[in-house]
Amino acid sequence: MILGQQKLLSLSINPASFTKPCRYKSLKKHKNTYKVLKTLQGKNILKMNRITQKLGEDKKILSIYFSAGYPNLNDTVQIIQDLEKNGVDLIEIGLPFSDPLADGPTIQASSTQALHNGMTTQILFDQLQNIRESVKIPLIIMGYFNPMLQYGVEAFCKKCAEIGIDGLIIPDLPVDVYADEYKSIFEKYGLINVFLITPQTSDERIRFIDSVSNGFIYMVSSASVTGSQSGFGDVQENYFERIAKLNLKNPQIVGFGISNKETFNQATKYAKGAIIGSAFIKHLSESGSRKIEEFVGGIR
């Protein structure tokens, strides 16, 4: 059963198997693939997963990250709704952690504040319980592994599926451990797990990550923690171009160092989309959870 699902996913979302010019649009056209999927399994993971659908649209993806429970404990749903209303394509909901070691000062501070505000895994799930009544765009939970381990990885995935979360980003769960121990659980609940690559990641490892991935690859723009830099130079440009030339089966979305229209455009010149985190949190710190329109409007 599980093996069948694995096959299903790699079969269904492998853009490399489609002709290149319509790489992302092509999914919907492949009616035969859908038939195969439906034959193999009662419900159609591909059709259900909003991330895959969104990636199929002919546009550059704007993804926004924020820490759940920041600035106020109960801002989560309002922020998500406002982001969708203002045209954001994908949202990464940060599950706060006491020791976020891949994050810079801005996200650390928002994470710490969210914990002070009382945010927990259960409270976040409670807040999101009815989110699919009002929000249609893909939602990803981004968090560190330990809180998920304590909740129980399977229970966590099950809850995500019930709520309508589409994927997870877990920076400290390495792809090797995921592939060995957790992949089958994620797939059982139709969750897409997103892995990071950096300028230091070897081509060989990128290809391995690409083979394990089934949504998009999170392309870290430079060797840094989040929120560390402003603007991209030749080094990033060359890196973006190098990755684009690898013709990976998964599209790439660039994160880290994207803060405005200029960096968004640079990042999406080669990649499918870009993620803004620290800059949006700074905006929340300064303007509260209102004026989201202003922020998103400034990006594109």
Binding site: D99, L101, T120, T121, N146, P147, L149, Q150, Y151, D172
Partner: peptide, 18 residues
């Protein structure tokens, strides 16, 4: 739990905060 890159015994809240 997991701390500093290692799965081990770890003092933490029920919510997994260290």
């Amino acid at each position: 739990g997991v701390i500093h890159g290692c799965k081990t015994l770890l003092m933490q809240t029920t919510d997994g905060q260290i």
